[in-house]
Write a protein that binds this DNA or RNA. Structure first.
Length: 271
DNA sequence: AGAGGTACCTGGCAGC
DNA sequence: TGCTGCCAGGTACCTC
């Protein structure tokens, strides 16, 4: 699933094709996603023009003036621009029909994604109301992390994957950022110094920026707005590299489960 | 308040 | 080859 870099790659890919365009219709072939697609969604969309494509965490936000179409890609979702109405595959659940025959097609084999409507601004929607800061903005800093972590005993990896702490950091980039920062993923969040949180914040920002530059990470499903995969997979240093050599020190990369998620780390470099 | 487990889905893969 | 069990990029919701 798409983490922040994949969602941002999608946003950048679709924005030029949908911004300013009028919505002519909505085809919902499968209503049962993470939540049911609202039965009246099409009525909110048809005839409206898309003003902007924004992002908050892993949520894509299509602003229509009268409200916001909120799209989440879940674990396996992707959005593509179609210039002609290609016949839908079994997991092509939704087409947003735009003027000039353009379509925005939503594909999601696992159906953990979501298409929701928010009247007014997206920030008012309950799903977005409790989200933490954006990792690439200044509100995300070591002081914020260090203060929030006080007395918390959960693993720092689970801590930075908590969307109330910071948005957009999923399993791949949590593993990669902790490796770059030299912090053991199982270390209690409340037992990390401010100085080490400085390193972690820098690592998170850097790894996310680099991944965005590479068009995200494609493990299986992810494609950008043009149907192309992301290439950051070649830059992963620990994720899915259990039993291989640590690229920094040569020790064997270890694999374990933390908070029910696969975790990869070098026990020599990360403390 | 925080931590941990469960649930929602499909598909690919390893092992038998 | 086919079956079974496990695993996968997320996250809301429940219980303790």
């Amino acid at each position: 699933m798409p983490e922040l870099p994949e969602v941002e790659t999608t946003r950048r890919g679709i924005a030029p094709h949908v911004c300013g365009r009028r919505i002519d219709g909505l085809i919902v072939r499968q209503r049962r996603l993470r939540w049911p697609v609202p039965a009246d969604l099409g009525q909110h969309l048809e005839g409206r023009r898309i003003d902007a494509v924004g992002r908050r965490g892993k949520y894509l936000l299509l602003s229509l003036g009268t409200g916001t179409l909120i799209i989440h890609l879940g674990m396996s979702g992707s959005l593509r621009i179609l210039r002609r109405p290609d016949p839908p595959g079994p997991h092509d659940h939704i087409d947003l029909l735009l003027e000039d025959e353009t379509r925005l097609r939503f594909t999601d084999p696992r159906r953990f994604g979501a298409w929701l409507w928010s009247a007014g601004t997206a920030a008012q929607h309950p799903l977005l109301a409790t989200l933490g800061p954006e990792p690439l903005e200044t509100g995300f800093n070591a002081g914020h992390l260090h203060a929030l972590a006080r007395r918390r005993r959960s693993a720092v990896k689970s801590f930075i994957m908590n969307s109330r702490v910071v948005v957009g950091v999923g399993n791949i980039y949590a593993n990669e950022a902790l490796f770059r920062a030299g912090i053991h993923p199982a270390r209690a969040a409340g037992r990390i110094s401010l100085a080490r949180y400085e390193r972690l914040v820098e690592a998170i920002k850097t790894v996310l920026r680099e991944a965005i530059d590479q068009g995200g990470t494609t493990l299986r499903d992810f494609v950008d707005g043009e149907g192309r995969p992301g290439y950051f997979r070649h830059n992963l240093q620990v994720y899915q590299r259990g039993a291989q050599d640590c690229p920094r020190c040569g020790a064997v990369i270890r694999e374990s489960r933390i908070g029910q998620r696969s975790s990869y780390f070098c026990a020599r470099c990360q403390r």
